[in-house]
């Protein structure tokens, strides 16, 4: 499939169009940061805050991606995903649990009869440093095991070497494997460093057919940032105005508390609008975030600050 410029992806976009798209990737970092920090001054209180926090819960991909993950750990997490706060019936399930391919089958069993989906990281997450055949095998395995969603990583080696075509082709190939399974493409913004790179990678990933673009693996010290998310959402909007396709965004890595999560929502709300305020188009990759959100919800309802032991382990 290399060097075949007539190859088109599932969205029917040619490589030439992709090149045209990324050619205009200009971002001014200072202006970008100013806009993002100005959005962070929004004061979200009381019912607006409660509504936001409930949204955050429903948008969470509860995640564990460790070598030490066991079936037991996955069972705990799945239970929490289905019923995050047993003491509050108003709290809905989270969007998904996110695991390694080898644990997809277990996760799938545990979330059966719930709305919780199972997402698997594949394509040799987190580095992606293997031949394409291996990435396809990895992904195919997760799909065969029943994954509803696949989170892949882009080929940063190729990207930083300037081989954008290779990055694009790999995503196209993995999307072919996925077919109707929801594809999230991780840019790993901490590796890309500049906002222009993030914009380019976003557009390449979108054009290659990703259903979502996702900030980070969560395995680097630099995870998601609201600035990176802003660049990505602008790319999503531009891509929509070109194709009519609404792609989603997942932010992951480093979003620890409710305040930060609400700031993401404010940004999505004001820049993208209602359509994206839904788990179908916006997700948080989370492990520790969820507990803070649950605490804050309880605090809003009772007026008292909460201790962690009131909430079950995930």
């Amino acid at each position: 499939m290399q060097n075949n410029s007539t190859v088109k992806n599932s969205n029917n976009i040619s490589w030439e169009s992709v090149l045209e798209l990324i050619y205009d990737s200009r971002v001014d970092s200072v202006g970008l940061k100013e806009r993002v920090s100005s959005l962070a001054t929004r004061s979200i209180k009381k019912d607006s805050k409660l509504q936001a926090l409930k949204m955050v819960v429903s948008m969470c991909d509860l995640t564990t991606l460790e070598g030490e993950d066991t079936e037991g750990k996955i069972s705990q997490m799945a239970a929490k995903a289905i019923n995050p706060d047993p003491s509050d019936k108003e709290i809905n399930s989270v969007a998904a649990v996110c695991v390694y391919p080898s644990l997809v089958e277990t996760a799938k069993e545990k979330v059966i009869n719930s709305s919780v989906k199972v997402a698997a990281v594949s394509s040799y997450f987190p580095s992606g440093q293997v031949p394409m055949d291996s990435k396809i095998l990895d992904t195919q395995y997760a799909i065969d095991a029943g994954a509803d969603e696949i989170d892949i990583v882009i080929n940063r080696k190729a990207f930083l070497e300037g081989d954008y075509r290779k990055v694009f082709d790999e995503i196209v190939a993995l999307k072919e494997v996925c077919k109707n399974v929801h594809l999230k493409t991780i840019l790993e913004v901490g590796d890309l460093k500049t906002y222009e790179n993030i914009r380019k990678a976003s557009l390449i990933s979108l054009a290659a057919g990703s259903d979502f673009i996702k900030t980070s693996t969560g395995k680097l010290s630099i995870g998601s940032s609201r600035e990176a998310c802003y660049v990505m959402l602008k790319a999503v909007l531009d891509y929509k105005s070109l194709t009519g396709i609404s792609a989603g965004i997942k932010v992951a890595g480093g979003i620890r508390d409710s305040k930060d999560a609400i700031r993401y929502l404010v940004m999505i709300n004001e820049e993208m609008g209602d359509e994206w305020l839904s788990p179908d188009l916006f997700r948080f990759g989370a492990s520790s975030l969820l507990d803070d959100v649950l605490k804050q919800i309880k605090k809003l309802k009772t007026g008292a600050y909460q201790a962690g032991y009131y909430f079950p382990r995930g």
Binding site: S43, K46, Q51, M55, E275, S278
Partner: peptide, 10 residues
Amino acid sequence: MVNWQYLESI
């Protein structure tokens, strides 16, 4: 999809 309004924060 929801409609999320910010309450006044005076």
